[in-house]
């Protein structure tokens, strides 16, 4: 077992800490008087944080020169999907009380729900095709398909912008992080010219 594999054994449970914290907060009544709303929001933010971290792997690799860091990318990306799915479940179960009628209305009336749903759909496809055998099967197409993560990140930010009512501080922070990470992917030559 090399050091990356060992480190992964530490990082994996760390990625579950936000969930443990939220479960504890729910069961001990610490999420305030509107816990469903707070829980859904927090899960969504964690999904976005993990998405940003997965986008940060490549820049981190290039900056540190440690290429092996790539082996964290799939795990972190899957955690983003994991929190995004929990975010949707919390929304459906605790905020909508499984009222499918309301969900359908939301889906065709409310743009922020629509873009959020598309982002989740993309993350799910990327999740399903993240296995080694899928990589092999898709060959060159795999890399192309997984470029969709940039679209998912953009839609997630848009989802956040559209649901914000008044203060954009958090949105601006997440937006700049994603923008920064995207900018890193434009080759320096292009950036300068």
């Amino acid at each position: 077992m090399d050091w990356i594999a060992k480190l992964k054994l530490v990082v994996f449970p760390l990625c579950l800490v936000p969930l443990a914290w939220l479960v504890n907060a729910v069961t001990t009544n610490q999420l305030g008087p509107d816990p469903a709303n707070t829980l859904t929001r927090d899960l969504g933010e964690w999904a976005l944080i993990f998405l940003c971290m997965s986008l940060a792997v490549t820049p981190a690799r290039k900056i540190t020169g440690i290429n092996k860091l790539i082996r964290f990318r799939r795990m972190i990306g899957l955690f983003s999907l994991f929190y995004a799915v929990l975010h949707v479940i919390a929304y459906l179960a605790f905020m909508l009380g499984w009222q499918w009628q309301t969900l359908l209305e939301d889906l065709y009336q409310r743009p922020y729900i629509i873009v959020g749903a598309i982002a989740i759909l993309i993350l799910s496809v990327l999740g399903v095709t993240s296995t080694k055998s899928m990589m092999r099967r898709l060959g060159k197409k795999w890399a192309k398909l997984h470029k969709l993560v940039y679209l998912a990140a953009g839609l997630a930010i848009l989802h956040f912008v559209w649901l914000s009512k008044s203060d954009y501080t958090e949105v601006v922070i997440f937006g700049s992080v994603v923008a920064g990470l995207m900018l890193f992917r434009i080759p320096i030559k292009k950036r300068l010219s």
């Binding site: 729910v26 009544n29 008087p33 509107d34 816990p35 469903a36 919390a90 179960a93 605790f94 905020m95």
Partner: peptide
């Protein structure tokens, strides 16, 4: 509307 306080088990 969600009448507060609520809980996730009883929205």
């Amino acid at each position: 509307e969600r009448r507060l306080p609520n809980s996730i088990w009883e929205p």
